[in-house]
Design a protein around this nucleic acid. Structure first.
Length: 415
RNA sequence: GUGGCUGUAGCUCAGUUGGUUAGAGCGCUGGUUUGUGGUACCGGAGGCCGGGGGUUCAAAUCCCCUCAGCCACCCCA
């Protein structure tokens, strides 16, 4: 029999990994709450149209990476591939359209891609969405939150913030046309992949990794030149604010985000090691999204970060050290008394009790040693008669007697 | 979806030009007289050599297919 295993590109989260996972989400949660972002958890299952209508039919996610299926009731469902569209949906569903909304979320996302370093089919994101504000200061606020988050995790210095503007819809459209014209003129010099991209989404050619393409791209029209007054002003104001806040960034005119709903601001925190999956946190503005899904014309800006990708950047993770204490008896008959005492203890959360109920006394000590216990509490038959237990410190090897009634105090204060 | 590398014990890996019953270290487990761990010594369990097919008297080893993992392309967090 073959061993049963997880679905390709998914894995069980356990041991040190889940501790790191929780470490990241708890830092994130604390920070977001401190800046008055509200938590939201949307279902993992959504109707397919939420994503097909917002991400764009030609996007890779929609065209080939979504886990979608028809359920027994003939509903067209999908395991969510990303968070933003789902939150836009939640705004509409819950009639939250008349106010500003600042949300944060974390949870699993699903995309059917070939797994590799920093990429799996079920992965986890933390993200924020600031909805209902057209002000560039909202973009700044959201970026500031990202800055703080990455600093909290001590990985900010390993990352570069790249930023660009795609302009408003008209600007973007206008630029797209000109870009297409330009590439059509240079069709013969493009890579095969980019020839295909030309009709689908010419913007994507800009961040092509093919050397062939990169040469031509250098002389391609610059998006900044095609921004209209409104878009240009928005971008300039944003950059000025970042300067004032002393946030390090680099303008990358080739930065385009792959999802259709983005406009104006686009940004990415990327690692400087030249690995392929180098985007750790990314986001931007999506002014038409909610209208697109049938809601009011609300603008929004936000970002998402991959927990697994953060994890790769996290060099050393300091595990919270528990003091492990083993507790056992010298005689089976006393074991129930041991459990009774344990149930009455009120311990600090730094202490981890481990009741050992099996094996010879020697085995029990050996077990304690193996799990790295700080010491042992032993219920000895003789000592029990005078309501005492033995404490053995594993560092020194010394033992002493403790009154049964003082055990709780002893564990909390004296070890 | 395309390509490269890798699959032998729980883990890390040996395994010769194909040749007896597939090994080591670590880990696990039992013991060295039953109320004391770490160290040492002696034992034990645990492998469809990823799966399937082929070549051969004989395959962990050679060939084909397949699956999985890792990595890269593509794309993205």
């Amino acid at each position: 029999m073959q061993k049963v295993r997880t679905v390709k590109g998914t894995k069980d989260l356990l041991g040190k990994e889940i501790l790191i996972h929780n470490f990241i989400t708890s830092k994130f949660e604390r920070l977001c709450k401190g800046m008055n972002f509200q938590q939201i958890t949307t279902p993992i299952l959504e109707n397919s149209e939420i994503f097909t209508r917002s991400l764009g039919l030609s996007s890779d996610i929609v065209s080939k990476e979504m886990y979608n299926f028809i359920d027994q009731g003939n509903d067209n469902l999908v395991l969510r591939p990303e968070g933003t569209a789902a939150i836009a949906r939640a705004i509409i569903t819950n009639s939250l359209e008349q106010d500003l909304n600042k949300f944060f979320y974390f949870g699993p996302m699903f995309r059917r891609e070939r797994p590799q370093s920093g990429r799996s089919r079920q992965f986890h994101q933390v993200g924020v969405e600031y909805i209902g504000s057209k002000n560039h200061l909202s973009d700044v606020e959201v970026i500031l939150l990202a800055e703080q988050f990455l600093k909290d995790l001590k990985i900010r210095k390993k990352l570069i913030l790249e930023i660009n503007s795609l302009g408003n819809e008209q600007s973007r459209h206008n630029y797209n046309l000109n870009l297409k014209k330009f590439f059509e003129k240079n069709l013969s010099k493009l890579s095969d992949i980019s020839k295909k991209r030309l009709n689908k989404n010419p913007l994507r050619i800009l961040d092509s990794k093919e050397k062939k393409d990169q040469d031509i791209v250098q002389s391609a029209p610059n998006i900044i030149d095609y921004l209209d007054e409104e878009s240009k002003l928005f971008f300039e104001e944003l950059l000025k604010s970042l300067d004032k806040l002393k946030i390090d960034y680099k303008i990358n005119r080739f930065l385009v985000r792959g999802l259709d709903y983005y406009n104006h601001t686009a940004f990415e925190y990327i690692t400087n090691d030249k690995k392929s999956q180098n985007t750790v946190l990314a986001g931007g503005r999506y002014n038409g999204l909610i209208k697109n899904l049938g809601g009011k014309d609300l603008s929004g800006v936000g970002w998402a970060a991959g927990i697994e990708r953060i994890q790769i950047q996290l060099e050393k993770f300091e595990e919270t050290k528990f003091k492990k204490v083993c507790i056992f008896s010298t005689n089976r008959k006393l074991d129930v008394e041991v459990l009774k005492m344990i149930s009455n203890l009120k311990l600090n959360d730094t202490i981890q009790l481990n009741f050992v109920n099996d094996g010879s006394l020697k085995k029990k000590f050996a077990k304690a040693n193996k799990i790295g216990a700080y010491g042992c509490l032993i219920f000895g038959e003789d000592e029990w008669k005078s309501k005492q237990v033995i404490w053995k410190d594993f560092n020194s090897g010394n033992q002493k007697l403790i009154n049964l009634q003082k055990v709780n105090e002893f564990l909390n204060k004296d070890i």
